[in-house]
């Protein structure tokens, strides 16, 4: 686990202990087009959105937060499917099956054929 990941885990743990406890809305991943990815943890805290943003590498072992929020599991599985990132102890196959295209949301992707 790299320093950044430990930091992530600690921050999210602290986040989940706040009172009232923030509700996890989503875990968003987005490609930065240079081999790194944005990982955004979005919380609903006291009536507003609070987000925590991280930059992770393609082959980082990201800590799963499924033990803090059970609902995070499906979000992480989706990221595994769509971007091929790795979460500790989580397997993909949520929306895609083994015969589907791999990491379809990774960029840069081939130019989409323009509609005629």
């Amino acid at each position: 686990m790299s320093a950044a990941e430990i930091d992530l885990r600690k921050k999210l743990e602290r986040m989940s202990l706040k009172s009232p406890r923030p509700r996890l809305i989503d875990v968003i991943a987005a490609d930065r087009r240079d081999g790194t990815y944005d990982l955004i943890y979005v919380f609903h805290h006291e009536g507003a959105i609070v987000d925590h943003r991280y930059v992770v590498n393609e082959d980082d072992d990201i800590t799963s937060i499924a033990d803090l929020y059970a609902g995070a599991l499906c979000m992480e599985r989706e990221i595994i499917d769509m971007y091929g990132l790795k979460f500790n102890g989580v397997t993909g196959g949520f929306l895609l099956d083994p015969s589907s295209p791999k990491n379809p949301l990774r960029q840069p992707r081939k130019e989409v054929a323009k509609d005629v």
């Binding site: 989503d26 968003i28 979005v42 609902g71 499906c74 979000m75």
Partner: peptide
């Protein structure tokens, strides 16, 4: 990115 309500409700 869409976070639809069913994504969290259905696994529950």
């Amino acid at each position: 990115k869409l976070r639809t309500p069913a994504l969290v409700n259905v696994p529950a």
